[in-house]
């Protein structure tokens, strides 16, 4: 039996994918706890790209109260959001 892709997601694999994306997009490396928004105002385009990347890569949909800056502030907060929202999560 094959598991659905989301079942293989671990915090480590999620964070690795996020870090790769961020590095390609910002041309710098990001620690899991580094604040992406600390340096200044992030463009709406970048914010949108981040949201779309998280949704399309991990098969989740982020809206309403989940669509807040704090959930996207660090690689770690994004992986926590994905773990919480991923399909089949018993806590969802």
């Amino acid at each position: 039996m094959t598991e659905p892709a989301s079942a293989e997601l671990t915090v480590e694999t999620i964070e690795e994918k996020l870090q790769k994306f961020l590095e390609s997009r910002t041309k710098q490396t990001w620690d899991p706890d580094a604040d992406l928004f600390k340096l200044g105002v992030v463009s709406s385009l970048f914010a949108m790209e981040l949201v779309v990347f998280v949704e399309s890569t991990f098969g989740v949909f982020v809206e309403g109260p989940d669509l807040v800056l704090d959930n996207f502030r660090t690689v770690r907060s994004m992986s926590a959001l994905v773990m919480r929202l991923r399909p089949g999560d018993p806590g969802a």
């Binding site: 992030v42 709406s44 385009l45 914010a47 949108m48 949201v51 309403g64 109260p65 669509l67 807040v68 800056l69 996207f72």
Partner: peptide, 15 residues
């Protein structure tokens, strides 16, 4: 226009 919604919500606007 989802980009606009993201912009508003990331700026702290909410329900």
């Amino acid at each position: 226009n989802r980009m606009m919604e993201v912009a508003y919500r990331f700026a702290g606007f909410g329900d």
